[in-house]
Measured scan of single mutants.
Amino acid sequence: GSPGIQSFLPPGWEMRIAPNGRPFFIDHNTKTTTWEDPRLK
């Protein structure tokens, strides 16, 4: 199987799917959430 997208996120980050189907990202380091992919910064 191919590695999940989770493995490509920075340490402490998690990806979830919102009720509307959009992915969002949780930064457990700062306890914040964002719509922006942290890998694109």
Rank of each mutant, 00 (worst) to 15 (best):
T32M: 10
P38V: 03
H28D: 03
R39I: 04
N20V: 01
K31Y: 08
T30D: 04
E14M: 05
E14S: 09
P19K: 13
E36T: 11
R16V: 09
Q6I: 12
D27A: 01
L9F: 06
F24K: 03
F25Q: 00
T34N: 02
E14G: 03
P19C: 15
D27F: 06
K31S: 10
P10K: 07
A18P: 03
S7H: 13
G1F: 12
T30M: 06
K31I: 05
S2V: 12
K41F: 15
P19A: 12
G4Y: 06
I17W: 11
G21T: 04
L40R: 07
S2H: 12
P23Y: 12
K41D: 15
W13H: 00
R22D: 07
F24N: 01
D37P: 11
E36L: 14
I26T: 04
I26N: 01
A18H: 09
P23W: 14
W13V: 02
L40S: 11
G4Q: 13
W35G: 02
N29E: 07
T32G: 04
R16M: 08
I17A: 04
N20T: 07
N29D: 06
L9M: 10
K41N: 15
G12E: 02
G12V: 01
R39F: 05
G4T: 10
N29A: 09
G4W: 05
R22P: 02
D27V: 01
Q6V: 13
G12P: 04
H28C: 15
P11I: 09
P38D: 01
D37H: 06
I17K: 07
K31L: 09
P3S: 11
M15W: 05
G21E: 02
T32P: 00
N29W: 09
I5A: 14
G12T: 02
G1D: 12
S7G: 15
F8V: 14
N29R: 07
G12W: 05
K31D: 11
K41M: 15
W13N: 00
S2R: 13
A18L: 09
H28P: 05
T32W: 08
T32E: 07
R39P: 02
I5F: 13
R39T: 08
T34R: 03
P11R: 11
L40T: 11
K41H: 15
K41I: 15
W13S: 00
P23K: 11
E14H: 04
S7D: 14
M15K: 04
K41V: 15
R39E: 01
E36I: 14
A18I: 03
T32L: 08
P23E: 08
F24G: 00
G21D: 02
G1R: 09
T34K: 02
T34F: 05
W13M: 01
R16F: 09
D37C: 06
R39A: 05
T33Q: 10
P38H: 01
H28N: 09
D27H: 08
Q6E: 14
T32Y: 08
P3K: 12
P10G: 04
S2F: 10
P38C: 06
S2T: 14
R16S: 06
T32I: 10
D27Q: 04
P3V: 12
I5P: 14
T34M: 05
G21N: 04
H28L: 09
P11E: 12
I17S: 05
P3D: 13
E14K: 04
P11L: 11
P23F: 11
P3H: 12
N20D: 12
I26K: 02
